[in-house]
């Protein structure tokens, strides 16, 4: 586990860079952008009904303070028994060059392709919804998809065209303003574009989650958020391959989350997988998506039912800032009746 002194040293180094090596001659830049999506769905579930639904309203501000310092802040307006404002990301970055940047703040955790590329921007991805195992933490997702901490990263390095993110953060159970324990999470994501139009990568994440950390109700399949009964060691490994060549889009990703109770030794391994394929005929893009979430009953943190989903659909690009999607999904959750869903979505960016 990384010592607190090392983390402090890294943070101090970043502060020093920002204060000493920035060029004041650079004109500051700023851009305000965002995403929104509007949905209508039909279902054949017994307790289901057709409904209109506002998706996520995401706004983000990005820009530079000097030639070397950039920042990004992102907030999402969500409805949860009243409108709430959720700070999704807030970071400041000092960039030495393409090969080395140091940032601090709240980030998308360095875990795989989807989490780092699309996140809240429904316009950016082809399907209507996120892969099931990549649901947000408060929707039953199995990955810690946000991290508050320190990030060292680089892009397009050498002839192997390596991209990397190394992240140290507070980990599961903490809040953006406070850590619930002294253990820090470590995540590493390395990917390469050595083959043109192909991106393949691997991720690794390690954390020690403390007893008492509150786990979202969706994650353990219950009705109420529950505190963890013991300290749990968490290890996540994932791999991805994406092909984006001309009219073809192929994307598949896999993650394995192993949780082990330190006192009882109870160990469970939960697996998540998705595959998406699409082919564009000009503005029209038919696609399919397969989802699998396979939790281990012995897992001390997650215990939602095994879930598989097969989706087919079509996306029509009105412009690069607007798309209409229609998607049919056959959803099979263990312990529940199979459900057929038909969803339409208008996704925009601005």
């Amino acid at each position: 586990m990384l010592s607190e002194k090392s983390v402090f040293a890294g943070f101090f180094l970043l502060s020093l860079c920002i204060s000493q090596f920035s060029s004041p001659a650079h004109a500051a830049t700023k851009a305000i952008r965002g995403f929104a999506d509007f949905n209508f769905s039909l279902t054949d579930a017994d307790d289901g009904r057709s409904q209109f639904r506002l998706g996520q309203y995401d706004t983000y501000i990005t820009g530079s303070l000097t030639d070397k310092i950039t920042y990004l802040s992102e907030v999402v307006f969500e409805y949860d028994e009243g409108w709430i404002l959720d700070l999704e990301r807030l970071w400041v970055r000092y960039k030495f060059n393409d090969a080395l940047s140091v940032s601090t703040g709240k980030f998308h955790t360095a875990l795989g392709f989807w989490n780092r590329n699309y996140h809240h921007g429904a316009l950016l991805h082809t399907s209507v919804d996120r892969p099931i195992y990549l649901f947000f933490e408060d929707e039953g997702g199995i990955l810690p998809i946000h991290t508050t901490g320190l990030l060292i990263s680089g892009i397009d390095i050498g002839s192997s065209r390596i991209y990397y993110d190394v992240m140290v953060g507070n980990g599961l159970g903490s809040s953006p303003t406070e850590d619930n324990d002294s253990a820090k999470s470590i995540s590493v994501y390395v990917h390469s574009k050595v083959i043109e139009d192909v991106d393949f990568g691997v991720s690794f994440y390690s954390d020690s989650v403390s007893e008492g950390a509150v786990i979202d109700a969706h994650a353990h399949g219950g009705d109420e958020a529950l505190p963890l009964g013991e300290d749990v060691d968490q290890l996540i490994m994932s791999a991805n391959v994406s092909v984006n060549k001309g009219n073809v889009e192929l994307l598949t990703e896999f993650a394995q989350v192993t949780n082990k109770g330190q006192r009882t030794g109870t160990k469970g391994t939960t697996t998540g997988l998705y595959a998406l394929g699409a082919y564009s005929f000009d503005d029209l893009t038919p696609f399919f998506k397969f989802d699998l979430l396979d939790p281990d009953d012995a897992d001390p943190i997650f215990s939602p039912g095994k879930t598989t989903a097969f989706s087919v659909g079509v996306k029509y690009d009105l412009s690069y800032l607007a798309a209409v999607k229609v998607q049919y999904t056959n959803l099979d959750v263990e312990g529940a009746d199979k459900e057929n869903l038909l969803r339409t979505q208008l996704a925009i960016g601005f």
Partner: peptide
């Protein structure tokens, strides 16, 4: 759209 993705990631200026 590719550019938009990179702006959202914070890789490039808008």
């Amino acid at each position: 759209k590719m550019w938009l993705t990179k702006v959202f990631q914070g890789v490039i200026e808008s």
